[in-house]
Design a protein around this nucleic acid. Structure first.
Lengths: 126, 126
DNA sequence: CTGAATCCTTGTTGATACTG
DNA sequence: CAGTATCAACAAGGATTCAG
């Protein structure tokens, strides 16, 4: 048995799982919105525009479960629920920002690579 | 390119798309394998073990299209196709490694947050 | 050996309706 | 206001078969 390999692979998959979550359709936008200021459910919904309430709830639950977002209920009429980034949630922002920076600076190169690739293999297609 | 531009929503979605791709089931493992050394198709397949041929092809095509991986065909019998990381592919490794590092160092905290959350809301369920 | 094409199962997303 | 529940549409992943 090779513990190093299986360990590395397991770690790799864990990181993939994290990337998948962060990279899903809404997480980044939500984290970004909450990164500016804590917000209530419907304010968040308005901010994101086209998100369904189901996906907003679901994504917030995931973030809450992972300890990235806190959920504070104020029992009143109407009820108020405020979402905010936790310390860990804020912390996550640093490596994300680095990756964002990379994506931003390489966007043109990627675009060019895609155009070149599509030009090569898509000439007679579509 | 100001850093404030990274706060733009379109950019945010672009980064999400990038994260989604990198975070998909096989990309990271493939990039990691190719990061060590260029490899041929079946060597890669053996290395990854449980990947289907379809997903390997598909993921490699995506990486190739984005300019992260190069594909070199040597016409012979049997044909040889070698995949390798491009300069940009290697470059991508830095911010990914930062995120991996973050995930690794926060794994326990995330695990704990999940356990706490599941303990809170799962007591009377299921 | 390196793939493309097909089918099938599963998971994810979204629209809609309803509740406290 | 802040959700939950349900269902339909669609995309992703995997197994299998065929081909250069």
């Amino acid at each position: 048995m090779k513990p190093t390999d299986t360990q590395d692979i397991a770690t790799c998959q864990r990181i993939s799982a994290m990337l998948s979550r962060i990279g899903d359709k809404w997480t980044l936008l939500i984290v970004r919105a909450l990164g500016r200021e804590p917000m209530r459910f419907n304010a968040l919904k308005r901010e994101l525009g086209s998100i369904s309430q189901k996906m907003l709830t679901q994504t917030l639950r995931n973030l809450e479960r992972d300890g990235m977002v806190s959920r504070t209920v104020t029992p009143s009429t109407p009820p108020q629920v405020e979402y905010a980034l936790t310390a860990m949630g804020h912390d996550l922002f640093r490596p994300i920002a680095a990756l964002a920076e990379w994506t931003w600076t390489h966007a043109d190169a990627i675009e060019a690579a895609r155009a070149a690739y599509d030009g090569r293999s898509g000439q007679d297609l579509r």
